[in-house]
Design a protein around this nucleic acid. Structure first.
Length: 691
DNA sequence: ATAGGGTTAG
């Protein structure tokens, strides 16, 4: 066979000058191969030629080729020029391979060029891209002269590596050292405030930006919009957006997210249609934000519709689309839909994307099927800290404390560094399984062994660890010793346990704190009310109820749902709207008789109304979770388990009844309430009765 | 010459 196309031959032994011109010409027509072949034939290439070619290869997504070329220089005995180091530093960062960056770093030290501030900055950035904060820090600390870029790179390195606190610390230190942040610094530090939901710092930086005339900068403003969005302040987000002189697609995406994450779904959609009439064109991220927004707000049909529209506009769902679509499959309670998406992931080779697989894993866990989560976790070719964290959290919410500890152990053994989320997961695993000593030990090891300082969240987890184990006084002491203002979740954990362990005094203390911190949360009033009623303190109970009424707070209606076949069935208390309502109540009555014979007494503590005993019992029998479970049992269709979801915490009496059903009918009943999963099997529950 | 904003675990 003779080729009809003859490739232009590559001249040998090019002069530096001619070589440079030919390489540039080849790059201009996009022929990287030829450019590299030409380069190989220049015995003494100019640094400019090396720089140009390495940069071009990096820019066009061929960082490994760029690094290969750099290595060939060494092999030919040519010591690279500073500018070449700069180019290859960038290439090594783009490769994502920390060993490459380390190699360039070492070479630069050996050649004595490391004190070059430009090169140092590029190396900090490269280490940051490989998520290696230690490497970046070493370069940063070794820099004799640090400019604003050095500081900016160092702080955004921390932010991008999931260490927003350290990022902010560097930002503040830079101010103290008299280096003035510029608009790049500001736009890259704001995501740290978003991550931490630190509205105070965010506002301060906003002020700084205004005083230094940065409010015309589209990067700064978009970052501000997102910061306010994530700190749940829609109004300022919108205000910044409205005052922007120019808005690009990122600014629009930010303000859309602001509405969606703050439950103003309609306004978000309205803005989305407004956006389409503007010059700005929706991009992939816009569609992802909108689909995520539909999902977060429970608008699944709309989300499916948007997914269709997105595709018809020529965009392909990517990892992020999947990741924002999947959580809803679990909110949506529909394992079937989640499995369909999982198949899509397989068909489109997205299994190589860790984020996507992690989202699939988490979806299965939230749908109540931890075994499927384990399968996905097992087939990950590589596990990052998020994957480990998600698996730990998945087990924690299912009450598998022992497995949580094992996972944590193997995570450490694999050399993975835990972060603050890891500890939230591990500690909540301990709390749900009454592992007090283990929890305390791990809590104490956080700063000492792992350089993660406990935050308010971790303290709240520890309060929960003590509380769920019934060590209420220790829990209370622990709250009082917190170095920061205790959050609602800390007091909430204590209050919840006061209900289980019937401690009126501490309940009153924690409730009064909760009324200050979150006066509009109906759950707190209801909890206190129930505790007081249980203690037969009718007077005080009615006072709590009056307080609630005066503040115009209404109880969130309890509601439970489950999927049978392709449909999701929803139940509220006393629901009679289901086609099979008669059968459901008959089933429950029959069950009631059986249980009475077995010596069971309904726990009437869990009824809100102050009514007579018989009526109380009747009201208990019609709690939404009980109706949903009964409906599931009547529609088993040969399955050995059912999955029920409830928006509030499960009722203690229903918990008893469902335990009984699981034994009587011989099925596994999985109930996810607002806090965790309960696996009922053979008369027991995985929560060890810490409902 | 080196650095930047939006969608992803709690």
């Amino acid at each position: 066979m003779v080729s009809t196309k003859v490739a232009p031959s590559v001249p040998t032994k090019l002069s530096s000058h001619l070589g440079h011109r030919l390489v540039k010409a080849a790059l201009n027509v996009g022929d990287f191969r030829r450019a590299q072949q030409l380069f190989d034939n220049i015995p003494q290439p100019d640094p400019t030629t090396s720089y140009t070619l390495i940069s071009a290869l990096t820019t066009y997504g061929l960082p490994h080729e760029a690094i290969r070329l750099y290595a060939s220089l060494w092999a030919r005995g040519i010591k690279p020029h500073n500018s070449v180091f700069l180019a290859v530093a960038k290439a090594s960062g783009a490769s994502g391979d920390v060993l490459r960056v380390k190699q360039v770093h070492d070479d630069a030290i050996r050649c004595g060029v490391i004190s070059d501030v430009f090169l140092g900055n590029a190396l900090i950035h490269a280490y940051g891209k490989c998520k290696c904060t230690e490497g970046a820090r070493r370069v940063f600390d070794d820099l004799v002269v640090k400019d604003v870029v050095s500081w900016t790179c160092m702080s955004s390195c921390y932010v991008n590596c999931g260490l927003p606190r350290q990022g902010l610390a560097v930002f503040h230190e830079m101010g103290r050292k008299g280096v003035k942040p510029n608009s790049v610094t500001v736009s890259s530090i704001l995501p740290a405030c978003s991550e931490l939901k630190d509205l105070k710092s965010g506002r301060a930086i906003h002020g700084f930006a205004m005083r230094h005339e940065m409010m015309e900068n589209v990067f700064v403003c978009s970052a501000l919009v997102s910061m306010y969005a994530r700190c749940l302040s829609v109004k300022p987000a919108r205000l910044v957006f409205d005052l922007m002189p120019h808005r690009d697609v990122v600014s629009w995406n930010g303000v859309l997210t602001a509405y969606f994450t703050n439950k103003e779904y309609e306004k978000g959609l309205a803005l989305f249609s407004q956006m389409r009439s503007k010059v700005v064109k929706a991009d992939e991220a816009t569609w992802n934000a909108v689909i995520g927004g539909c999902m977060e707000n429970g608008q699944t049909d709309e989300a499916v519709e948007m997914l269709r529209k997105m595709q018809s506009m020529g965009f392909k769902p990517n990892q992020i689309t999947i990741s924002s679509f999947l959580p809803a499959c679990s909110i949506l309670k529909s394992l079937r839909m989640g499995k369909e998406v999982h198949c899509y992931v397989f068909r489109h080779w997205l299994v190589w994307d860790l984020t996507t697989l992690t989202a699939v894993l988490y979806m299965y866990a939230k749908c109540g099927d931890l075994n499927l989560s384990r399968n996905v976790f097992g087939m990950m070719h590589r596990k990052d800290v998020v994957a480990w964290n998600t698996m730990i959290i998945a087990n924690a919410m299912h009450g598998n404390g022992k497995e949580v500890l094992l996972l944590f152990e193997s995570m450490l053994q694999s050399g993975m560094r835990p972060n603050s989320v890891t500890f939230t997961g591990v500690l909540s695993g301990c709390s749900h399984s009454r592992l007090v000593e283990e929890g305390l030990q791990i809590f104490n090891s956080m700063g000492r062994d792992h350089q993660v300082e406990p935050d308010a969240n971790h303290y709240a987890c520890m309060v929960d660890v003590f509380s769920r184990a019934g060590r209420l006084v220790e829990a209370y002491e622990f709250i009082q010793r917190m170095p920061m203002e205790p959050t609602a979740s800390a007091w909430g954990a204590l209050l919840g346990a006061c209900r289980v362990y019937k401690n009126v005094e501490l309940a009153k203390v924690s409730a009064s704190k909760l009324f200050e911190i979150e006066p509009n949360n109906p759950g707190n009033y209801v909890s206190l009310f129930n505790i007081l009623v249980t203690a037969k303190l009718w007077n005080e109970a009615s006072k709590a109820r009056i307080l609630m009424k005066e503040r115009g707070i209404t109880k969130t209606p309890g509601c439970s749902w489950l999927q049978v076949g392709n449909r999701v069935y929803t139940f509220v208390v006393g629901d009679k709207n289901n086609m099979e309502s008669d059968k459901i109540y008959d089933f429950l009555d029959e069950l009631d008789e059986k249980m009475k014979l077995a010596g069971y007494k309904p726990d009437t503590d869990y009824v809100l109304q102050d009514v007579d005993q018989e009526e109380k019992a009747a009201s208990l029998c019609s709690h939404s979770e009980r109706l949903a479970v009964a409906f599931g049992i009547l529609n088993l269709n040969g399955q050995s388990s059912i999955r029920v979801f409830k928006n509030l915490r499960i009722c203690g009496d229903c918990h008893n009844v469902i335990k009984y059903i699981s034994k009587d009918v011989g099925v596994t009943i999985i109930v996810r309430d607002s806090l965790r999963f309960h696996h009922f099997r053979n008369g027991n529950c995985s929560c060890q009765d810490l409902w």
